[in-house]
Amino acid sequence: MSIQHFRVALIPFFAAFCLPVFAHPETLVKVKDAEDQLGARVGYIELDLNSGKILESFRPEERFPMMSTFKVLLCGAVLSRVDAGQEQLGRRIHYSQNDLVEYSPVTEKHLTDGMTVRELCSAAITMSDNTAANLLLTTIGGPKELTAFLHNMGDHVTRLDRWEPELNEAIPNDERDTTMPAAMATTLRKLLTGELLTLASRQQLIDWMEADKVAGPLLRSALPAGWFIADKSGAGERGSRGIIAALGPDGKPSRIVVIYTTGSQATMDERNRQIAEIGASLIKHW
């Protein structure tokens, strides 16, 4: 067993022997301040990774656009098919120029040779490549099948209805392509620590998230040296922004954090800054 596999296998073990965790309302004060600064709703939840206990939450059962955070769930569904012998990570998928959609920095470079399922998941999570996500959605049967996968996990809230990039439209009061912070946090925890996926697939999923290259201005910008984070960000229309993450000190994750916002007129930089400040408060009061 590799060191990384050992780390993920012992996530519940280490967490069980940690000192009790206590909620700190100071972080919620910052979440509410972010709402004021952005002029928009902000949803927040913080779960203990081992027990699933909610440590703090704000608007945990209000719907927010998922945006690209759905790509972690998508690759979880792909990995479940791999575990069941219905898919192979090494299978190569070929596609054409007509398949390319807006923001496809990886797939646009491989029109000639195609990409493997493993490479597509890596591109979808680490670079948020939209064509990679659409190609992977095709392998599982489309958005409705991802929703069905989530329902089978016990998540009857999260739903995907459309493809990239239309799913980022974020129309107010439109339930399409949305989740709730509580539902997303619980589902992410199941994917990373539950028995739904094999140990190898859980490790692969967290490795992809740990290698995320496009979430630097968010929670990662607030992390002290030595902290662990595996995350996936999302951005959408109407001032929408979000991030889902597993993080913790001492090089291992111990909490799940989900943050979503929508309806702001603020710039992307300002949305990023507010999420980073929430992260800084979380870490300060850990």
Rank of each mutant, 00 (worst) to 15 (best):
M268F: 11
K109L: 14
L47M: 12
V31L: 11
S281G: 08
A170Q: 07
A225R: 13
L49A: 09
N152S: 15
A23D: 05
A276T: 10
S281N: 12
T107M: 05
E119H: 09
G114R: 03
R238T: 09
D113Q: 13
T107Y: 01
Q274T: 15
E237I: 10
E237N: 14
M1I: 07
R118D: 12
M66D: 00
P143V: 07
E46H: 08
M180C: 14
E145K: 13
E210P: 00
P172K: 10
I45N: 03
T138K: 15
S264A: 08
K53D: 09
L205S: 01
Q4P: 09
T69H: 07
R159N: 07
R63W: 04
I275S: 01
M209T: 02
P217I: 06
R202F: 03
A9D: 05
A16V: 14
S96M: 10
P224Y: 04
I283N: 03
I256A: 05
T107K: 01
G154C: 06
I206K: 12
A235D: 02
E56W: 05
F6K: 11
A170H: 09
F70K: 02
R220A: 04
L191I: 11
L197I: 08
A246K: 03
L120K: 00
Q97Y: 15
L73D: 04
F70T: 05
T131N: 04
E169N: 12
T267I: 09
E46V: 08
G279I: 04
E56R: 09
A211M: 10
T69S: 06
D177Q: 01
T179S: 09
D113N: 13
G43R: 00
N173R: 13
S57I: 07
H285T: 15
P165F: 05
A84V: 12
M66V: 13
F6A: 07
R238A: 09
I11W: 12
A245H: 00
F58E: 05
A148H: 13
L135G: 02
C75G: 09
W163E: 11
L150P: 01
S201P: 03
V257W: 02
N272W: 01
E102C: 07
G242M: 02
F13D: 01
Q204T: 14
V258Y: 01
L28T: 09
S281Y: 15
E35Y: 02
A183R: 09
L89H: 05
N134L: 02
L191R: 00
S122M: 15
E35H: 02
L120G: 02
N130C: 05
S254N: 13
F17E: 04
T158H: 01
E87H: 04
T193R: 15
L219D: 04
A245R: 00
I256C: 06
L188W: 04
C18V: 07
K252G: 10
A200Q: 15
S281H: 12
P224K: 07
H151A: 14
G226F: 06
G248F: 01
H110L: 08
V8M: 11
A215G: 09
